[in-house]
Nucleic acid binder design. Sequence first.
DNA 1: GTTTAGAACTCTAGAACTGC
DNA 2: GCAGTTCTAGAGTTCTAAAC
Length: 513
Amino acid sequence: MPPPFDSWASEPQFPAIHNPHPSLQSSAPQSKKPRHRHSPHQLAALNDLFDRNEHPPLEQRTALADRLGMETKTVNAWFQNKRASSKKRVRGGTVASYESQPINTPPAPHPSSVPHDFHRNHDMDDILDDEYAFDTQHSRSASAIPSDYPSSFYAGHPDQAHFYTESDNMPRRMRMRTSSEQTDELKKLYSINPHPTTEQRQMLAASIGMRYQSITNWFQNQRSLAKKRKEGDPEQSPILGSPRAEYPHETRHYSAFPPPSHPHPSLGLPPPSTHPSLANGSVMRRSPSISSSMEDRSPRRSSSHRSSTPYGSLASASFNRPRRSRPEPYQLDALKELFSKTSTPTIEERSALALEVGMDVGKVTNWFRNLRQMARKRAKKSGSGDDEDDDSFMGRDPYSASISRFGTPSFGSSSSSMNDDSIDADDYDVHLAHSDNGSEDEYQEAVTPSPGTSPSPPPTTSVDSSRTPDYSRFERRNSPYPVQFDKVTVNQFSGVKVEDALLLLSFHHHIVH
DNA sequence: GTTTAGAACTCTAGAACTGC
DNA sequence: GCAGTTCTAGAGTTCTAAAC
């Protein structure tokens, strides 16, 4: 995947870094004029004149334009729009506008506009976006597009045209999740320019394989987040006009382990600096959305601790919940594999898997917990028989049905429920019967430390030192641990020490092998 | 089970434009 | 100059799923 923006930044049409907003940019020739918004000062003056005279003579408009540094034609346009909007308001919202209509009953589009825009935008999509192809490949969304999709219709933004049908039960689009590479590229551009032009977004879409609309959404969300966080924490205000200043600590590292200062609470071990699966030995990178705060957690975030950037700063992030991450594909494969064997892996299995794929044990635990939780919901829902969606992308095996195309558990979502209930529900029941079997499951969950905040697991009362430990458990579940692991003495099977020993051993095993 | 981040979305305002 | 349209920004909402 070519890095699209390293070169863009030097291209003449690319907005200057210190002019993040189009209105502030000294834009070079572009196919389209950058969007402009009048400044508060200009608007105040314009409104002032408008209040006095809705139809000011040309001399007044020209003088005002000169005074405000605007073009006369812009002032003219503003007065036209202002008159139109005030007239509209006076009419008390009786104007039939597509904007005011419910989304599920979209109005007939303007007869002259539909063919032109519909085709124009879909041509653009075909070339640059190819979203239908993407959906067809990866999600149920494509199948939701009726074959008799009314080509003469769209409502609102053309990119959203396929959300609406004349029947009002069109499901919401399957949520797009960006990959780490995509997020990297998005952040690169955002750091250079939070307001990329349409062309830039289109190029980025084509470059990183995202829908154009998703990219637009992403930038909108990021700007909104940045603004909210800035408002919530004025001390964190970046240097005005310097979007780059919003990312003082942008580097985030994928680390399968807590950083040296905060190793896994159950291990007094220094974290490995590399992930075994990385041939180059570089530090494993976490999903780019992961903040560096992973290494320093605290219970609850406070909005006042949010930084002014969508990605936070190191200082504020230290009080934040870690950013949500997604398993990498190879991690997901390993998780899937284990889930196909058991939905309730033991702590040993989870630890081994965590080490194997370079994940936190807590994350692995959470992943399984969430999956089982979703499965329960799913099973419940299936029982009520309110499931009619067709999730072709999920396949028919019990595991794949529970994993969305983005690698996250997905059972009960409104947009991803399944149709193959007879099979899926049964298979889930098998897992559930196994997983919800009471104390063992609870124990397994309880002893799993959450990263960072993980309290030491309570000394188990279920293990009696006089009892012979159930070694068969390891055999039954194909424990990946070495033989000597299964020969841990009875006395070591108690509380924290057991887990520590297990993790130590597994870590040792991993390093040795 | 609950909380929360983030993606997707709706809705609205307004800047710019076209055709009459 | 007006009506109508296109397109985008931004605020706010909904929903999913990771984290707790």
